[in-house]
Design a protein around this nucleic acid. Structure first.
Lengths: 246, 246
DNA sequence: TATGGTTGTCTATATTAATAGACATTTGAG
DNA sequence: CTCAAATGTCTATTAATATAGACAACCATA
C-alpha cells in the first residue's frame, strides 16, 4: 500500500495513541504481520502514522497491557495473541456449537440471576403479559480463557423456573433448556448494532476504554413458535465477527 | 434509573467530552428524551456524568456540529435529528427495498469506478480466476439526504461489463442488474464486524472522529449459485441496525 | 414585567497528551 | 567480538483537555 502518512485525526477527543493502538490491533487481527510475527519497528510506525515515536510507544504500551503484544529490547515488539472468532447466525444458532473448534476450551459463567416482572418492551417480545415474572440471567462466556461475550437473558418464569440452577450446572443454555424439557429451539430474529464499551463491558470483557462492542439482540422460540428466550449479548468487536448464511 | 455519577473513564485516550457526546447521542437515538424533545440542562448532565459543566458544553458543541442538537440560549438544547434505520438481512436483501418507508427520499451515488484484476481473496469469493478482470464501484447511499452507507462493490467484468453505466443511470444495483439481464439474485452470506471510522468514512458519511462504523461484507449469487457480486459496506453505527429474520 | 431557569462568555489554573532530541541498553547476526 | 537494529529512559517544551468560578444574555411564564 502507500508508505506515506495515513489516517490519524487530531484534536477530536480521541488521543492519537489510542487511535494508533486500535489500528495496530486491527492490523494484527487481520493477519497483516503474520510473516514476521512482529509489529513493525517503532520508528517505522511513527513515520507511517505521521507521529512522534513516543506516541507510538504509548500505543504499543496499551496493547502490551491488553496482552496483545510484548516488547523485547533489541528484538522488537512481538505479537502474543491474535484472534477473531466467527459466529454463524442461523435458525439454529448456538453459542457453543458456533464456536466449534475455533477454541479448545469453552466456558459459561453465571454472573447474576434474578426473578423480576417483565417490562413492556420485554413482554411484547416474549409475548407474555407486561409485569409477568421473568428470570433474568447475566452470563459471561469465554473461549480459551478469553471473555468473548456478556449476555443478559430473559426467560418466562412460569415455564422455565429452574433455569438459574440448570444453567449454573451446565454453563450452557442449550443443555439447560434440555434439562427443563425443551429439546429444541429456533432463532427467529437477531438485531445487530455497535456502540462504545461501557463500564461493565470494560470490566467483564477485559477491554480497554474506547473499545467497540457488537450488540446482538436475539429472540428464540420453541418449535411451535412460542418465545422461550430473549437475549442481549455484547461482544468485543475486535475479537468477533458475525456471519449470516442464507 | 440512578441519578448519581455514572460511567465516564478518565485518562484512557478518549476525552471526556467525546465519551459524553457519544452517550448523549445514543440516548437520543434510543428515544430517552422524547417526552421533552430536549436534552437535560447542562448542569444536570454535568452532575450526572460527574464532570464540569464546561466539559458537557464541549460534548454538546460536538453534537451541534453533527446537526443532532441545537442549543438555544434561555430555552435549552433541542433535539434536531433522531434516526436509526433498520436493515433487514435475508436471502433477498435489497438496499432500497430494505429501507422501505423508513425514508422518503432514497439516493445512490457513484463516487468512483474502475476495472482491475481480481486479488486472490476476491477471486476466491467470486469463484473466478485470480487476476481476472473485475469492475469495482465505490458508491454512497443516502436516505433523506443523510448518508447511510458507503460501499465498495466488485462484479466479474466479463459478465457485467456495463455495470458502471447501468448503476450511474439508475442509482440502484437491483435495477442495474436487471438492465444487464440478471432478473434475480440472492444473498448467500453476510459477515458483520465493527470498527472505528477511518478518514474516508468521516468524509463520505459525514461522521465525527471516533465514531463507529458497522462493516458488512456480502456475497450475492444468481439463482444458479454463481457469484455475481461481492460488496463491503460501511454504515454509521449510531444510525443503523441490522436485523436477521429466520 | 419580574423572576427562575437556561445557555453564552470570560478569566485562570492544573493535568494530560504530543513533540523533540539525546543517549543507554539489549539482541541477533556476521 | 563488533555492529546494526531495536527498545528503554531521560529532560524539556508546547498544545489540548479539564476544572473552577463569576456573571451576562436570553426565554418562557406566572
Amino acid at each position: 500500500m502507500d508508505t506515506g502518512q495515513m489516517n490519524v485525526q487530531r484534536q477530536n477527543g480521541v488521543a492519537l495513541w489510542r487511535q494508533i493502538a486500535d489500528r495496530i490491533r486491527t492490523s494484527i487481527a487481520n493477519g497483516e504481520y503474520d510473516e514476521t510475527g512482529k509489529v513493525p519497528p517503532e520508528f517505522a510506525l511513527a513515520e507511517q502514522f505521521g507521529v512522534n515515536r513516543h506516541t507510538v510507544r504509548s500505543a504499543l504500551a496499551a496493547l502490551a497491557q491488553e496482552g496483545i503484544v510484548r516488547s523485547v529490547q533489541g528484538r522488537g515488539t512481538l505479537i502474543e495473541r491474535k484472534d477473531r472468532l466467527n459466529f454463524p447466525i442461523s435458525q439454529r444458532t448456538r453459542f457453543n456449537q458456533g464456536i466449534g473448534d475455533q477454541a479448545r476450551e469453552k466456558e459459561g459463567l453465571l454472573l447474576h440471576s434474578a426473578e423480576e416482572p417483565a417490562t413492556a418492551d420485554l413482554a411484547a417480545r416474549l409475548k407474555i403479559k407486561p409485569g409477568a415474572p421473568v428470570i433474568r440471567l447475566e452470563t459471561l462466556r469465554k473461549a480459551d480463557r478469553r471473555p468473548v461475550s456478556r449476555s443478559t437473558t430473559w426467560f418466562p418464569a412460569d415455564r422455565f423456573g429452574g433455569m438459574t440452577e440448570a444453567y449454573r450446572q451446565s454453563g450452557s443454555i442449550t443443555v439447560a433448556f434440555r434439562t427443563l424439557g425443551l429439546a429444541d429451539y429456533l432463532r427467529v430474529s437477531t438485531e445487530i448494532t455497535a456502540t462504545h464499551a461501557d463500564n461493565a463491558d470494560l470490566a467483564d470483557l477485559e477491554l480497554s476504554p474506547g473499545a467497540i462492542v457488537l450488540v446482538a439482540k436475539a429472540l428464540n422460540t420453541d418449535t411451535d413458535g412460542v418465545p422461550v428466550q430473549y437475549a442481549v449479548s455484547r461482544f468485543p468487536a475486535d475479537m468477533v465477527q458475525f456471519t449470516i448464511e442464507n
